[in-house]
Write a protein that binds this DNA or RNA. Structure first.
Length: 315
DNA sequence: ACCCAGGCATTGG
DNA sequence: CCAATGCATGGG
């Protein structure tokens, strides 16, 4: 077991606790990610070998700096660099929040939200596959139910590594960490077995199908989708069974970091827009879409900040 | 016991 | 092309 260190300089403003916390749904632990005592941890799957990254802030919101400790084997300089890139991507460190904040200033409700959550960047998933599977697992069910199901899938089929929990120290207190399941692992898993993950037949079929697509080589990897326009990405991923416009829009936000996606159909989005802007009167998707026109081309940011307000009890 | 929750595909008009 | 329906699970 080798150890290596590196540092990352996010684009300011960057609030580490908020951003890592959003990634874990403001729970100490959510699926593959944990935020504990100011340390964000994630088991990276670097070309098939497992590296535990422990990240903490050594700067401030306006002068951010992250210290990363890596543990694993084969930590060559190239792989350390790759790990740093992945951590940076997971935490969205390169995003420039300024244009969105400028727009938010014109809206009192949003100005309050961006004031409260100043420095929140939009976290990303490690892969397109991860965003798709998490999306499917989250369809139409309550977030806490989704959390149970996602965690079960990850801890059953995800690559597992045992690591000392102490940051930058040694102890005999080892703890298991999980990376997101690889496509091959889920593709090899019969639908009947996936149903044991508290999935409906339908969702088990969706997950199996998406896994088979990615295990067999696909034209939907991030490198491929990256060069396409939003619409073209949506057209392509909605070809997959189980992936509709809601999942596709969340994929644009979470897996590709697109700034202007809008997950219409999302009940929570309707609820938060209703509460913040329509005095709690119910709104439908058409009203949400119309209302969000002025937020373009920053609708992903508006969406994530509204969700944060909702999750943190501001709406 | 019910009803709803950060949808989707399928089916029937 | 729009509306209705089944689906799994856990919490209110």
């Amino acid at each position: 077991m080798e150890k290596a260190h590196c540092s990352i300089t996010p684009k300011a403003p960057f609030d580490f606790d908020l951003t890592a916390g959003y990634h874990t749904y403001f729970q100490g632990h959510y699926g593959t990610d944990s935020l504990d005592q100011g340390v964000y941890r994630r088991l990276l799957d670097l070309n098939g070998s497992l590296v535990l990254a422990s990240v903490r802030s050594v700067g401030s919101v306006d002068s951010p700096e992250l210290s990363v400790e890596l543990r694993g084997s084969g930590l060559t300089p190239e792989r350390v660099d790759l790990a740093a890139k992945q951590i940076g991507w997971l935490l969205g460190v390169d995003q420039d929040l300024a244009p969105f904040y400028d727009l938010a200033r014109q809206d009192p409700a949003m100005a309050a939200v961006t004031g409260q959550f100043h420095g929140l960047h939009l976290p990303h998933t490690a892969t397109v596959f991860e965003a798709l599977v998490l999306g499917i697992l989250g369809q139409q069910i309550a977030t806490n139910v989704a959390r149970i199901i996602r965690t079960l899938l990850i801890e059953t089929y995800g690559p597992r590594g045992l690591f000392d929990k102490i940051f930058d120290g040694e102890s005999n207190d080892e703890e298991p960490f999980f990376a997101f399941p690889r496509p091959e692992a889920l593709a090899a898993c019969p639908v009947a077995e996936l149903r044991g993950m508290k999935l409906s037949w339908r969702k088990a079929e969706y997950v199996q199908g998406v896994a088979a697509e990615f295990a067999g080589g696909t034209d939907m990897e991030r490198a491929t989708l990256e060069v396409l326009g939003d619409e073209e990405v949506v057209n392509r991923v909605t070809q997959l069974r189980g992936v509709g416009r809601w999942t596709a829009q969340w994929l644009l936000i979470r897996a590709l970091g697109r700034p202007d996606a809008l997950p219409l159909g999302d009940l929570a989005l309707r609820r938060v827009v209703s509460r913040l802007y329509f005095s709690g009167e119910p709104v439908d998707d058409a009203q949400v879409e119309e209302f969000c026109i002025p937020w373009s081309p920053w609708r992903s940011y508006a969406t994530v900040y509204w969700f944060t307000a909702l999750r943190r009890g501001m709406a």
